[in-house]
Nucleic acid binder design. Structure first.
Lengths: 342, 342
DNA sequence: GCACCTCATGTTGACGTAAACATTTCGATC
DNA sequence: GATCGAAATGTTTACGTCAACATGAGGTGC
């Protein structure tokens, strides 16, 4: 009665297949790994036996044997921002193409303890490498030593870590957005920045400021948001009440959406009265009202490069200490125009 | 020269710790697993040795030994829809709380082969259970046998699969949206549905239709979108051109956004001329213009329930064959109002 | 016809862990 | 003070796979 087929327990192993096919376990292994030095008849017999007993390779045993897991850990702060989730999607695709799997670890609450927790689970070595996609300063604050010898790729952070860093050209993007508004004739550009923990936010902010200064324009006080549309709306209400504001650059599309709403609410027209630019080019941006001028980021490229760098390092054991920049591109839609009164 | 510390290779094992601490490997194992039957002094000595040699448990060996991986596979069609990515986020949080890890498998292109590919990697048994989050019909079409005996939870699909199914109350949500518009005084409600492969889309559609019929209202022809804002925009253009259209129910918020844009473009006012309702209550919906009336789904609950059901089944070996319904709630904002002319 | 090579297949052992069982130590009980 | 039991620790072994080595069968060259 014990071996009824519905019984819980381990599945069939190579030994079972071997018995069924009348060969040794090693031959089964060779077939399972696609080695060529197996007779065609034998191979067929083994494959048949595999099918009959429902064999599935045990990846734990395989990993134990090889010392490799064919698995990549992804530590990500949250999936709620558009960029993170798009990047993860791209990583997932690229990783699958390489024949690896992804172990996903989210760090939901922004506390040091949580980040440390994610890393400690990583410590249970079950991954061949790690991609880190967290707000950098959050990473800085946590006193975490990455497991020594574990390949790591950091996305969108400063280069403090001695690991390959994939990075979008934050500065160029922010500069092109700011310049676009100035070139349209606006006297200056207001900025709604992302949270200070974010290195990306910091660089967009710095670049916006530098661009204004280089053009000899006054630099309005920075408004600090948290990436959410709600925070964009709040700051937007203040901006909408100030008739001198004619151009706003939000550090992401979601905050730009909030700004648009605030402007609509008080009847300021976009782009006639106020121009708005976002950052990210999320899929919905083209369907905002009005369609949003924004800075396109290629999250696909970011994900692909991150995976390529990591897989390379895993294969060779040599960190590729390059800093890879992924370009951005300004997409002009209908939310920007020259200021009306001049 | 061979054992320089930077060398690639395996980390220290229990044997190394045992040697360092002057105890047996078994004692190290006991300490590592928090067993109580270890002398306090010994425990301290072992922990110290672990720290010194930089010991990290090898999860492959552990999994091989125990026959359990403490890992859950998540098969997801894509992260680009808001709902999927929110649900995944919730799953990730719940799974971490249970002390499990997530192996993520995306099925990017909507082809049968891709789905089969994701499953075949699953076949390499490395997970204790699976959560499936794919458009149901896509799943139906693929000739896939789930590995027998592997616990599975299916989210948002029909009950064809003999596995626990977590489900939002699609029908109730769609009905409440439709009823809301009728109660405001609209003669009928147009519907932009999700893609036919989606079971969720199908049920929202059926429920919309049933609600209209129950109220004795004419049922306009269905418009079929693909969840994207662009598809909503396309259909929206047609609707905007028809002055008899006063109420639109889109099967998700993104398509609703496209409809809003189309209406704005031709100068039809929302909600004065046309009322619009969405579905999902994505974070941005409150910042659409006008703020969108929509059906709130609790993706957190969906994720949590899915994980709870799966972990339960893994622990007990007994499938919990219940169908769990997660309620929805209509959130009325500013995109709906009584029709102007009456 | 014998040495030698090639190719298919089999046998052994180790990867790191932890359950099962064995041993030792020490204090409590009568 | 002999007996028993509990608690701490050690020893053996198996989990499933696959590299390394061993074996054996057929073929080639001189």
């Amino acid at each position: 009665m014990r071996q009824s087929s519905g019984q819980r327990g381990r599945g069939p192993s190579m030994a079972d297949v071997a018995r069924e096919a009348g060969v040794s376990g090693q031959t089964v292994s060779r077939v399972a790994n696609g080695r060529t030095n197996v007779d065609a008849d034998t191979r067929e017999r083994v494959l048949d036996a595999m099918r009959r007993v429902g064999y599935r390779p045990n990846s734990a045993a395989r990993a134990l044997r090889n010392g490799r897991f064919r698995t990549i850990g992804v530590i990500i702060s949250s999936l709620s921002t558009f960029g993170n989730s798009r990047t993860l999607d791209a990583i997932a695709g690229a990783v699958a193409d390489e024949g690896f799997s992804i172990v996903l670890m989210t760090v939901p609450r922004h506390t040091q303890g949580e980040v440390a927790g994610a890393f400690s689970r990583l410590n249970e070595q079950a991954v061949d490498g790690v991609i880190i996609l967290i707000e950098q300063h959050q990473l800085d604050q946590s006193e975490i030593e990455l497991p020594a010898g574990l390949p790591v790729v950091v996305i969108d952070s400063n280069a403090r870590y001695p690991s390959p860093v994939i990075d979008t050209a934050q500065a160029e993007g922010a500069a092109s957005a700011t310049r676009h508004l100035l070139e349209l004739g606006h006297a200056t550009v207001w900025h709604i920045a992302g949270p200070p923990q974010s290195y990306a936010a910091e660089r967009r902010l710095k670049s916006w400021q530098a661009t204004l200064e280089a053009a000899g324009r006054p630099v309005p006080p920075v408004l600090i948001g948290d990436w959410s549309a709600d925070s964009g709306y709040e700051h937007g209400q203040r901006l909408a009440a100030d008739p001198s504001v004619t151009a706003v650059f939000a550090a992401n599309d979601q905050m730009a959406l909030g700004v648009l709403r605030a402007l609509h609410e008080v009847g300021r027209r976009v782009p006639d009265d106020v121009s708005v630019v976002g950052f990210d080019d999320m899929a919905e941006a083209a369907n905002f009202w009005p369609p949003l001028t924004t800075v396109h980021q290629s999250f696909d490229d970011v994900g692909r490069h991150a995976v390529a760098a990591l897989v390379g390092e895993i294969a060779t054991g040599q960190p590729e200490s390059t800093l890879i920049h992924v370009p951005t591109e300004l997409v002009v839609r209908s939310s920007t125009a020259p200021p009306l009164s001049r």
